[in-house]
Simulated assay, not measured.
Amino acid sequence: MSAKQLILPLNQEQIRELRAGDRVELTGMMYTGRDAAHKRMAETLQAGGSLPVDLAGQTIYYVGPTPAKPGQVIGSAGPTTSSRMDPYTPVLLAQGLKGMIGKGSRSEAVKNAIVQSEAVYFAAIGGAGALIAKTIRSAEMVAYHDLGTEAIYRLEVERFPVIVINDGVGGDLYQQSLDSTRND
């Protein structure tokens, strides 16, 4: 099965058509953010402040890229374990975040928030950071500069490979895989 080609930012029609297990290639603009950036965004919102970037309709890639070598756009850019963002994810989904990319499973609270927000969680291949970096056409640090590699970057990507893990209707590829092995 060939990968679905999607243009970022995601729209509701695209999200509604995605199902757990779909292979996807993303092209367009996304943001990055890891634990420290997520914590700061959540604390900012709790204090009544506004975010440094508008998350409405956007996708966040959970990555702390390594510095670029001369002639490169970005260094290695492999996914971070997504569960580390789980305490902050529901509040960001409430801000209109529509896509998340990382590795590993999500908590029940996050899976419920994904369905409620009609969002999607994708997995990128862990251990393939150098390969993934080749799909990144530009990288610009846009917020929380003091966090270094954990700052928020704006990335332009082309055919960035992911797979849908949690879709907007409650599908969960990891759970489906567990269920199918139990039934064998």
Rank of each mutant, 00 (worst) to 15 (best):
G104A: 10
L92D: 04
I114Y: 00
Q95V: 05
H145I: 02
G129F: 01
R137V: 10
K111D: 12
K69H: 10
P90A: 03
I60S: 06
Q116P: 02
I152T: 07
N112F: 07
R137E: 06
M29D: 15
Y61A: 03
G102R: 07
A47C: 08
I101H: 03
I74W: 00
D54S: 15
M30G: 05
E140N: 07
T59V: 13
Y61I: 09
G75T: 01
E17Q: 14
S138V: 03
Q58C: 12
L131Q: 13
H38I: 13
A109K: 14
H38C: 13
P90M: 01
D22K: 06
R16L: 13
L155H: 01
I114G: 07
Q95R: 14
V53F: 01
E25K: 15
T135Q: 14
A133D: 00
R16E: 15
P67F: 05
K69E: 13
L55M: 09
Q58F: 06
V110Q: 04
T80I: 09
V91F: 05
A36V: 15
S50V: 14
M41Y: 02
L92T: 04
E43M: 14
Q116C: 03
E17C: 07
G33W: 11
A124H: 08
L18P: 09
D22H: 15
Y121W: 09
D35Q: 13
G57P: 12
Q14A: 14
K98W: 04
A109T: 13
S138G: 04
R137H: 01
V63F: 10
R84Y: 08
K134C: 00
S83R: 14
Q14I: 02
T27G: 07
L97C: 06
A130D: 07
A128K: 13
A109Y: 05
G127W: 08
I74D: 00
L155S: 00
S76Q: 09
M85W: 09
E158M: 00
S76P: 06
V24D: 12
Y153T: 06
S117G: 11
V110F: 08
A20P: 05
A42Y: 15
L55R: 08
R40K: 15
V115Y: 05
G127C: 09
T44P: 01
F122G: 05
E150N: 09
G71A: 12
Q58P: 08
D146M: 10
R34C: 11
I60L: 12
G28R: 08
D86Y: 09
V142Q: 07
K98V: 02
G78E: 02
A37P: 07
L97K: 10
G104D: 09
G71C: 12
A56M: 12
R40Q: 12
L18W: 04
K39Y: 14
R16H: 13
L93A: 02
A124N: 09
Q14R: 02
